[in-house]
Design a protein around this nucleic acid. Structure first.
Lengths: 196, 196, 196, 196
DNA sequence: CATGAATGAGTCTTCATTCAT
DNA sequence: CATGAATGAAGACTCATTCAT
């Protein structure tokens, strides 16, 4: 895959739009090709098949995001602040790209077992960051020592994901970014010490 | 739709199995019919189309579950205990039906906008129960007074859902029911008072 | 076939309406049954299959018509007057039954080879009357002696049929009965002696 | 529709044969494709659906015929000779293409209202020619001045059509072309002056 | 005679993918 | 590299007909 060629990006960008507007199953390869301004066959010079386009969209768009996220979070000392940055960047990322949010929260889920494995591979990097935050919090005693890291991660990811999905399914009619603070508070509390 | 006819239930039950084992898109109607022991055409006496089968499975199975849940929870006084019962029943319900868990967590998500609306209609009852718990907790001062009910609901639902999905995607190789207590603790903390 | 039973006629009458309003292929047997006020299965106590209904409509409605026609025409001496009666009765018959005209001119043609044979059997009686008229005309010297009876019959039938079909396809928006005289004139001329 | 592509004509020609031999409803698209030597899907690059094939056959074959007919007839001065040419070319056209005659006279009639509209659009050109002939005859005093053009046209078309249909339904076992002269005579008489 | 729930055969159409140019 | 015409597999759905009651 020659990921630096302009056509590769053209197709990725066209795919986000076409899939967001039509749904994955109604997004014909020929429609993506037309939107990208290339021939149908050209798609197959850059992608193995239709599913590959979908996953590549995720890999490409989320891959960059996770890289940025990692850089930002590494430089922060406290888990609380790390977690705030995570929620903040996550919400801002999707709030800034209407179509990508739809693809990520709705269309990408319409995939079979095989696809989900590749998606999970990408997600692993993101989940590792969450794990890192949780462990940091336990070390700094910001969080309870007896936290089950996997469960804490599932709460953090589940809450963030559900919040974004609800926002998308409500046609993004309220401001997602305003939810950063209260969501962060919920998560911090969840990981913190039980009230006396 | 004659929902009391035995054939209706036969088809629903067959659909759960066939969809879980093959995935929604590979689950031919004829395969469901054969498993149910009826003719292909009989399916269409009880369901409008293939999608209708999928949603009906959810409506039927989750409808009963939500009813039971409501009854149990209404009789409980404290939010903490209510929430425990919710998590407990949710996990037990899906842990007891291997196929249903797959359909609920994975296959049902592969649906188009129209279908999701019907699914959401069913979910509304479930989410209303969560809302009720959160409000109860706020009234009894078990939970913070300044909770955003919608966000709290999204945390609770998101955490539970993500926990179940992870468990399904890991082929249910660990015991979901053992997670009731720690998940409950995370959620109670999330909704409770900030540590000193 | 117990053709005197009321249900037989009920079904025939329902069929004319349903077929006229929906077209033969969209006229489901169940719709005819419902309109006739009988169960689906009852249809098959009176008719062999769906095609049989269609032909029976024709046999029943046209059979009576041809009988009447025969009686009337036999009593007439001259071919010209016989032909006038034929055109007159034909146009009046179809002009008086909106639905029957549609079935006869349009829907009945949508049949396969086998059906057309049965229809032709019924038509034979009608065509025999035309033949009789032509022969009478040749004997009385009203018509040319060298007429080809078959061709004359085809002109007469073709002209009448085409006139009615055009009228049906134009949604019967002009008065068919007013055409009796001019059509009769055309046919008489066609069969008559060459000018000068 | 790329009507100049060879495949378009291949499919049209295959359709005439397959439909004539099997009847429209038993003529599977896959059979037409096979006969045309193309893949099933290729059909749909050139035709909207199965019905579109049927009408296109008529449009294509009759369109050319009507064009030729127009050219020939325009060059003729007298209505009588014009009419002779019409009948002559009509009979010769269908007598020379066994399969086309079947499709035109029998299968094409098995179409629904929507289809008949497209068929009528093509027929309009043909009927216009007949009208032109009738009017010419009235101007040259070959025909009666008081002819109703529409009725005359219906007689001419009805007679020709019925003659061809009878010939097709009798398995074309007699010579259609020998009927040109007598049929022409019938029509000329019909339009001409009443015998003194 | 009458019912109507159940049957199951039969086919058009889509669209991801290929490959000759 | 790029094209786009051609491919062909695959399956949901309808509805005439049956038969146990």
């Amino acid at each position: 895959m020659k990921k630096n060629k302009p056509k590769y990006k053209q197709i990725i960008d066209a795919a986000v739009i076409v899939i967001a507007e039509n749904g994955y199953h109604s997004a014909q390869v020929s429609k993506i090709a037309k939107t990208a301004g290339v021939a149908d066959g050209t798609i197959y010079l850059y992608f193995k098949n239709k599913e590959d386009i979908l996953v590549s969209v995720f890999e490409e768009k989320m891959g960059i995001f996770v890289e940025n996220l990692e850089k930002q979070i590494t430089g922060i000392s406290y888990a609380e602040k790390k977690l705030y940055t995570l929620v903040d960047m996550h919400f801002k990322h999707l709030a800034s790209d209407f179509h990508l949010a739809i693809v990520t929260q709705l269309e990408l889920r319409q995939s079979n077992k095989e696809l989900r494995l590749r998606i999970n591979a990408v997600l692993k990097g993101y989940l590792a960051i969450i794990d890192h935050i949780v462990k940091t919090g336990m070390e700094t005693s910001e969080f309870r020592k007896d936290l089950d890291v996997r469960l804490a991660r599932q709460m953090i990811f589940g809450t963030i994901d559900e919040t974004v999905t609800s926002w998308v399914m409500n046609d993004q009619k309220y401001d997602l970014i305003q939810l950063v603070k209260p969501v962060h508070q919920l998560l911090i509390n969840g990981c913190g010490y039980t009230k006396a």
